[in-house]
Each structure stands twice: as structure tokens, then as C-alpha cells.
Design a protein around this nucleic acid. Sequence first.
RNA 1: GCGGAGGUGCCGGAGCGGUCAAACGGGGUAGGCUUAGGACCUACUGGCUUAGUGCCUACGCAGGUUCGAAUCCUGUCCUCCGCACCA
Length: 945
Amino acid sequence: MVDFKAIEEKWKTEWERQEAFEANADPGRKKFFVTFPYPYMNGYLHLGHFYSIMRTEAFARYKRLKGFNVLFPQGWHCTGSPIESAAKRIREKEPGQWKTMKLSGFSEQETGQFGNPEHWTEFFPKTAKQDLIDLGMSIDFRRSFITTDLNPQYNRFIEWQFRKLKEKGYVVKGNHPVVWCPKDNTPVGDHDRVEGEGETPKDFIWAKFRMKHSDLIIMAGTTRPDALLGQTHIWIDPQGEYVVAKVKGEKWVVGKEAIRKIEQQFAKPEIIGSITAGELMYKWAQGPLVGYETTIIPAAFIDATVGSGIVYSALEDPVDLMEMQHIQAQPEIARSYGLDPEVIAKLKPIFIIDVEGLGENLGQEMLDKYRITSPADKKKLEDAKGELNRVVFRKGVMNKSCGRYAGMSVPQAQEAIKKDLIKGNDAVMFYELTGKAVCRCLTECIVKVVSDQWFLHYSDEEWKKVAHECLNSMRLYPEKSRQQFNYVIDWLQNWACVREYGLGTKLPWDRKWVIEALSDSTIYMAYYTLAHLIRDENPEDIDDSLFDYVFALKKDPPKNGKKIRSLEAMKKEFGYWYPMDFRNSGKDLIQNHLTMCIFNHTAIFPRKHWPQSFGVNGWVTVDGKKMSKSLGNFILLKDLVQQAPVDASRITILSGGEGLDDPNWDSEFAKACPAKLEGLTELCLGHHGKGRADMLSADHWMESTLHLIIRDATTFMDELMFRSALQKIFFDLPKAMRQYLRKTSSSPNRAIMDAAITAQIVMLSPFAPFLAEELWQKTGGKGLVAHARWPAYDEKKIDEKATYIDDMLSSARGDIDAVLHLAKISKPSTVTLLIAHPWTYDLVKLVKEQLPETRNPGDILKAAMATPLKQHGAHIAKLVPKLVNNPSMLPAAALSQEQEQHAFAEAKSLYEDELKCPVEIVRAQDSTHPKAQQALPGKPAIIVT
RNA sequence: GCGGAGGUGCCGGAGCGGUCAAACGGGGUAGGCUUAGGACCUACUGGCUUAGUGCCUACGCAGGUUCGAAUCCUGUCCUCCGCACCA
């Protein structure tokens, strides 16, 4: 029995005692710097963290074995609102939060402590570190740190970074709409909502229709500014309550409900008075973009409480068109409102959009298609409107009547018109939520336009260009993810980088703002290089000039340079370790963190310090199901460490997947894994240092196989394909060693067996470091296996023939069994193997050579007939088509008859042992048996009696 | 809707024009080795056949290109990830 837990304790202690993973600048050695994004400290680490960090860890250990000086640091992220919100909910005794804490195993008293946000930043980093130590991560923990102003040195670093960005013009001021909780006075992200996940502010245009003979302006909302080009009239709600409000010096007519929105999103309005629908009806107004006036018409389907309470119509959509047709068919309705039916009768759609495959009257086409005859067909009307909007948006083109917008696609025209109207004071921008959203405090959210907001200027075209350059120079694992990165660089808009709420660093020039969590984590990898040194410096002495100096951006020594004891050491560390060589995370971080990391590196650092490579991976599932607390399959690392041997867990998680696919934690595999590790232990310890000195063909086979496995495993490790590497290392190699022992009756060549065992231990160490250390020590390895050398392979030692002979012998063995079975002979008295005629070897060689040229049996046959093989023409004519159709019959390596005979002769005694009867190896030309003709190279004919 | 990644056997997944009924692993069945085993070994795990290496049906669905397609092309359906101010 292997006592895994004892081994873990032993080596954890030993690694710490030897400071095995503390890496320092050493200019004489090549370096490799890997990172994993610091996890957010609002809870325990779980299986999801484990997978991404294991990819980093396995790569770090591999690079160490390849002779690199490897730095793998780890920090803890505390910036942002979740910790502060949760602490607040605890203080307010919010039952849901208390229950969550209880489920996480905290007592009431402990939970009370979490009412203080700082407690989170002390408690969870501690547990996270312990988890990672227990899991055998080869991390340099001297360099760990937490973020926010709770860490004054890091705080200085972030301040420096932001001043730097601002200097270079990458931080700009602007307005931005957010989903907002009026009670908490804070933006409400998806995860902070009890209802309305995914709802987002959608922009509307409120177009200004100036009333004739009046200074009133009708504000008509729309999502389709393009339709203004075909405006026909204005709709109002006959039952609606309207008001006149003074906004920025103008008198707006809007629905009463709209006042609140104006206040939240635009400017403080002053209500001058109310106005009824009746007073508005049949008045004329001048809308934007066109040279004619339109009139105001009531319609039952308009709701004064939605949007601005007023809309305009172009009769382009089926709902409007149906309503209008309804009104036109009943002139008495118009008359009852005091409208002139003749004016109404003249209203018809103005065509402005061409859609391929549709006529010009789009609304009518839809009405016909859906067979709608009445405004009461609400469901059908909605569907028809939906379909039309989609098709117009995708395929619509503004027609030649549209002036400067003619020829534009509909989305293009919408953007252009929006811009022009706002610029010309013909419209203002408003936002509506796409649906109801409710904050965790149970308050319904609104849209608020945050003004004076600071943004990182990711929309800057020049900046995007440089970001692309950086990406182009990077290695990505897997390469497939590049498309997504390219897309995100282009798609990223200005990023609101500060908030009014949460933990973090205060914006240095505007202290009411706190720098937001993604924005303070873009270039912090540079901080790792000096975290352990700067920690001991007085924050008072740390200023921008220090960072400029140690990051080699300016030559001038810092102002307080004399007071900074580790100044030169920091500069040296940064200069040695940067750039970062590899960073791995889940694929969800492509769209923000990783891309922002690229942007900000290019903004601050010179090209030589840009990131070198990123790895991205999928999301962990447990036995094929998404990991979630409600499903009860949420695995925390602190529990995992208790429950199973760590080495087994590490292997299980990495063999769960690779690439961008979601990796799966397979419980069955996890259960079976420790036993497999025990078997491997027996195999290594039981055969190390034993064996003979002479070389037999089985030894050549083992040597060849070993080098082949090392070669493949090395390729996979280089590509970060850990599952494939594990297949070679954890499955194929032990299997080969066992076969080897069997072939040699447990008397292997000592040097070869030892080489295999050593390779096994070293190659296993990135995955199962604890057991590997133990085996390394027990087999007499010097120092730690963590610092050993990855086995080299020798292409010359890879002998295709050796592998082929092995396959040939075992497939012949299988064929013997098949024949025995078919012949219903359980105890044969003799088995004879007839080795193929010498000329068949020539034929097979010829076919193999011809195959890449032609697949036509006739041509190959002709080629064969041109050689001395001609004398076997009859056989060849039959054989060639067979071989062409089934190339698997062709041997993988070319042997001569003598070599094949020799190989079988060597295996003879093994066969005899297994079959318990004499085995004869006979050349076909020495036999008169008719089956002798059937024999092919690698496929001897078999006769059993 | 937009962008990305995928759909292969009981399961996880290799394969990405011919050597594919499909690597490797898991699970299952039968047997072996063992005091015992969760180690290790052997066979079977789409169907049918046979003193042997053969045939048929299969790689989401429907077409196409090719002497030949799981692999290339077109269409279609389905699944997953992201779409922001949030870690």
C-alpha cells in the first residue's frame, strides 16, 4: 500500500525547506514566467480554478524540467463590489447571504466577522494559499499579494499605471448608460439582480417635431430613425396624459411618465403645464430630415406611459399600416376626433427601403403574407412586425429617394441619421431597459446615464491597431482561439474603468471614483516581479518615478531612490522576468481580461515587454454536468484535498479535456486513479536496478518504444496538450514496460529498464509531483525530481522495424487463436507458420512505392509485370487489386524474408509456452502445403493440427 | 440577433481525403493470475459471416465534389461559450 497522504506531507515540507519554487533573477539562465489570473476572494477555490491553474502548473513544471528558471507567482484579487456588497448584506442580516455562509460551513459568529469587507481579504487568501500548497503547486508564494488600497504598495502601482495611461491619452471622460439601482445608488450587474438577467439599456432616439405656430416640440420616440425619411404622421394616445416641460430651454411635449426618465438621463425638467390629447390632435408639426409637415393622429395602440409617450409613423410597418387602414375605412372615427377625413385618406406609405425579394410596400407585403385583416390580430401583427424588422435590418438598403443616405444599409443609415440628428439638435438619445430588472435589494432598476464617467479609450483605432500587432506576435494555445481575440479587439468599446462603490484603488486625480476590478488587473503581472521586495519599502517613498525606473521606462533614478533599499534588485528582477511568457485562463476571459491585458501592455510597455503567449480553456463539468451549488456537485479544493490523493486529482482533472472544449471531471476515473498509481509504484520500484547486460531484440523494441513515447510526449507538452501527454506518459509507457517484462520473462536489460523507469518518473512529475518525488528518491535520483531533466529522445533510437516486428508477432499470435477457434481445436498438437515466398516481399515493396502515384490496380500490375516478378503473374494479378483496396495488408516496415523468419524464430519459444505445443517456422518455398501460397509478408500462413 | 467553438461507439474522446468498425481511457461481460485484491493479464463489447485476414450498416440531417469522405464543399437542425462596465 502506498500512503499517499504521508508522501504529500513529506514532500510539501521538503519543498518548503528547500525553497524549491522560489525563483530569482539569474541572468545566466534562461527564464520562463507563467501566470494564472488572480482569483476573486469572495469564496473558496473550486474545481474550475483547479483546471486552469493546473494547466499553468503543469506547464511550469515541464519548463523547469526543460532547464528553464521558472517563475510561477500567485496573487489574490479583492477589487470590486461583490465583497463589499456581501459584507453589507451580512451586516444588514440579509437571510439569503447568511444562509450562503452557513452552507459554506461558517458558524454564526464567523459569519458575523464577514460583515467587515477586510475580513474577506484576510480569510480567503489564506485558505486559497493553503489549498494551492496542498495541491502541490510549484508557486513562489513570496510574491503573493492582495489588491486594493489595503495593500499600499500595490495601490501606488495602480495609481502610477492610471496616471501613465491618462498622460498618454488613454483615459477619457464621458457619459454612459447603466442599469441602476436608485436605492443602492450603484450600477447593477447581471449577478446582482434577482430578476432580469441579461436586460440591458437599449438606445432610442427622441426626434423633435416642431409644432407649427408654436414653440412646442413634440418628442417622438423610435428605434428606427431611418423611418424618419418616410414619416407620414404622428401617433398619440387619445387617453394619454401629456405635459409640457421646459428642458434645457426648450418646451417639450411628452407623456407624463417620461418626466422621470428625462430627469435620470438628460437634464432636470421643469413642468410648465399639462396638455390633452385633444389639444394636440390634428395639429401640424415639422419633423427632421424632410421638407413637409405631418399631422397628429390618435391611435388606440399607443401608450402614453411608454417611451416619450408619442411616436411617429412611416406606415412602413404592418401594425401602423393596419391601424391606418382601419381609420381610413371609417371616416366617422376621424370626424368624431375633429379631423378632416380627406387628410386622413391621403396618408399612404412613402417607400424608402429596398429589400431584395420584397416589393416596395413592405408593410402591405407582411399583412398579405400573414393574412392580417384587422388591427385586432395582435399576435399575427407582432410576428409580422418582428419578421419585417429582422429582414429590413439584415437586407434593407436605403433607396434613391433618401438623399445622402441613399445606398446605405439600414443599420448604417440608422447610425448616420442618429449622429446627424443629435448633432443638429433634432433629436436626443434616450435609453430604455429591454425588460424588467430588479436589484438584489428588491428595488426595480432604472437606466441612468452616469456622467463624468472615466473610460479606458479602447475604441481608439490606433490603439486597436497596436493591440492587433501584439496579438499577431503572440502564441495562442489553442491557436483556434485567435479568431475570437481578433474579434474582441475590434469589438471592445470604451470601458468605464471607475465606479462609485466597492473595494479598490481610488482614482488618483478624482478621488470620488474607485478603479474598477478589470481595469486594475491588466498589467499587474509586472508587479509580481518585485512584489516580494517592494512589500518592505515605505509606501510614502514610492512614487511614479520609482515605477518608471524599475520598469525601465525612464533612466532617471527615482526621487526617493536613496531611501529604497531594494531599488536595483527590483529593476533587475523586472528586467530578467519580463515579458511574461505564458498566461492561462478560462475562455470566458478572452472578451475582457485577456484582451485588456494586451491593450494595456501595449499602452505602457515597449514591444519587448509585451505578453508572449496565452492559453485558454473551457469550463469544468462534473460527470458531464455543469458544476453548480444547487446540483450538489460543486467541488471545493479544500474538500478535494482531504478526500483523494492529490496526485490522482491532478491527473484526473488534466485528463478531463484539452483545447477549448469543456473539460470533464470524471468521478470514475478519479476513483480508479490511485490504484493505477500504486501499480505504477510497484512497477518502478520492483524493477529498478535489476536485469542483465546483453541486448536482445526485445530490448531494441523497448528502447525504440521508449524514445517514441518520449518524443510524442514532448511534442504534446510543448503544445499544452496535457491529456494527450498523459496518454503517452501515464498509460502507454507503463503498458510498454509491462509488455517488455513479459517478453523478457521479467529479465530486462538493466540499462534500458532503468532508463524507462527514470523517464517514467520524471515525465510523470508535472502531473503527480508527490509520488514522483518519492519514487525519484527511492530509485536513487539526485536532488528533487522537480529540478531534474526531462528525458531526451534520440531519433536514431526509434526503430520502425522493431515496432513493426512486435506488431507482426502479436498479430500472428492473434491469428493463430482465430484459426484454432474456427477449427474448433482447443489443444493443438502442432502449429506451423509458413513465411511468405521471397518474391512477395518484392511485390509488396513495389506496390508500396507505386501507391502514392496511382490507385489504379491496372497500372501497378503493369509496373510489376515489367520486373522479374512477371514469372508469378497469375498470383500477382490476383494480389495487386487486393493490396490496393486494402493497404492495411501492406507491412508498415520493409523486412526481408530472412529477417521475418529470424523474428519468428526468436518468438518461437514464447509461442510454444503459450500454446503448449511445438511451433514450426518454415519458409514457404520449403513447404508443399497449399496454404504456403497464401502467406504474405508480415502475415505468415498458419497450419494447425 | 451577432461573433466563436462543436455535433463520432454504452460514456469521455482521438482521427480531419485512402492503412477506419475507428487510437487511448472509462464502463460492461467472460476468463486468467493471485491468500485476497481497486493492481496486472487475455478475449469480447454495431450486424452477419468464415480453417483466417470477408461482407453490410455506421461518424447530427440532406445534398454535392472525388476512383475513394467521419475527413473537402453547400444547405439545414441542434448544443456550448461570449455579447461589457461585471468578477
